[in-house]
Every structure is written in C-alpha cells, then in structure tokens.
C-alpha cells in the first residue's frame, strides 16, 4: 500500500490490472491520469423536494460541492468524471442551484469535467452549457475502463450477469453495508468486473447490498476505507439480526 495521495485517506487496490485508490471522501482516484471519479451528486434534490411541498432545510448542495472542491484541489485532479445522476430532477434546477454550480465550477477553471448521463440526468436534462461540462452516454471507454451509470449486474429478468473485463466503473445503486446494529455506512462494491461507487451526495440513502462470496466489499469508516470479506458482511448483518430479535 502506498501513502495516501495528497493526505487524502485512501486504500489502493488493483482490479483487473488497474491500480485505483478508493477514497474515504466517496470517490475513486486514478493516479496515472490524475482523474477523480464520483457518482450520484444529485444536485438540486432538496430543491425538488421543497418544490413538492416537503420542508427540507437547505444546505446540502453547498456542503457536497464544498467537499468536492476540497477533494479536487487536494488531489490536484486534472479531470473529474461523474458517473451519472449529476442533477436530480428538472424541478430541482432552480436559479439558486444553477448559481451554486456555476460558482463551484468557476473555482476550478483548469478542471476538465465529464458527466456520464444517468437515469436522473435523462429526465433532468444536461447541465447548463455555461458550466463547461462534457456529457457522454453510458458505456464510453476511458483508457482501460468502461464507464457506466447503471452497473451491468442483472439482466431484465433480474438474473445475475457475469460481465467480462474490462473493468467497469458505475454508480446508481448507492451501496452501503451494515457494520453494526443500526450502523450503516456507504461503501464500494465489486462484482464481476464492475466496481460500484457509493453516492457522493450526503443527501442520499445507502442501499444495503447482499454480497456474494466472490465479491469484494469496502466500507467507508471515516477517516478510513476498510475492506471486509463478504462473509464478514454477512456475519455483521446476522449480528445486527440477533440484536433486532430482542
């Protein structure tokens, strides 16, 4: 294991011959190309909920963008690739949200930003041209990687797929693990050539994943990223089960 880049806590892993750093800040760092990958920013989610009459306090997007800015500058990233769901919904694209995104973007003039279009982006629409963001469809190649939003884990019927290399990076699922009774944490999940990233936004719920024995699982236990064996995940889940039974 190498020292964490730029003081960011990270865990270096090698998947299909590609060396990656899994960041506790909910991203993946590819040192060779100085590229930062994140997934599921869901910008404007709270706005969309407020517009529908749900009293959610503002502040989430500012916090998410602040973390992203720190991460990009801390790593010295040249490129940022968002693996889908950059925006949450059309109703959430208020002038306030657009202004916040623009302010964040203008703080990073040298950064190249690419968004892989996710299911939310398809209904929310592409980011405003002023942001200077390149939008690409799912399935594009990026060096040794294939970029997607929805991981190709299951077919239409819900049956498991076994996808061959190359290594695919994806988001969409917001994977999370239960690491103790009532404690869940977002994490990275690797199955059959696909690495699923946790959702970047803190205003997202993690979805508990049930790993198979051949999978690999990493939990974000700030400030660290920790690998668990799938059996450990199952054991922790059952321990939580025992507590619940009481």
């Amino acid at each position: 294991m190498t020292a964490p880049p730029q003081g960011r806590r990270a865990l270096e892993v090698e998947l299909h011959g590609v060396r990656l750093h899994l960041l506790a800040g909910r991203g993946v760092w590819l040192p060779e190309t100085r590229t930062l990958f994140i997934a599921d920013l869901h910008a404007g989610k709270d706005e969309a909920l407020r517009a529908a009459g749900m009293p959610i306090p503002p502040g989430v997007l500012a916090s998410d963008l602040g973390r992203l800015l720190d991460m990009v500058t801390g790593l010295g990233a040249g490129r940022l690739i968002v693996l889908g769901d950059f925006l949450h919904a059309r109703r959430g694209r208020t002038p306030g949200v657009e202004a916040q995104l623009l302010e964040w973007r203008s703080g990073l003039p040298g950064l190249q930003v690419v968004v892989v279009r996710g299911n939310h982006d398809r209904s929310a629409g592409d980011p405003s041209p002023e942001l200077g963001i390149q939008v690409v469809p799912e399935g594009v190649r990026e060096g040794p990687l294939l970029l997607r939003h929805e991981p190709p884990l299951r077919d239409e019927e819900g049956a498991e797929l076994d996808s061959p290399p190359p290594l695919t990076l994806a988001g969409h699922l917001h994977p999370a693990w239960r690491i103790g009774p009532g404690v869940r944490t977002p994490g990275f999940w690797y199955r059959s050539s696909t690495l699923v990233l946790p959702a970047f936004s803190e205003f997202t719920s993690g979805v508990l994943v049930d790993p198979a024995p051949k999978d690999r699982c990493w939990a974000i236990a700030p400030p660290e990223v920790v690998e668990f064996s799938p059996t450990a995940v199952a054991r922790l889940a059952s321990r939580a089960r025992g507590t619940h039974a009481g």
């Binding site: 989610k45 709270d46 969309a48 909920l49 529908a52 749900m54 959610i56 306090p57 503002p58 502040g59 989430v60 949450h88 919904a89 939310h120 209904s123 803190e202 205003f203 997202t204 719920s205």
Partner: peptide, 20 residues
C-alpha cells in the same frame, strides 16, 4: 418516475434536520 424522484428516507431527513 416523477414521484420516484421525491422518495427520500426519513432517516436521511432526520440527519439533514439535525445538521441544518
């Protein structure tokens, strides 16, 4: 689809309220 984009768990809202 449009209402699905409005689904959010109460646990998440609890955290957001506590913080903001």
């Amino acid at each position: 689809k449009s209402t699905k984009a409005l689904q959010v768990s109460s646990g998440l809202i609890y955290e957001v309220l506590e913080r903001y």
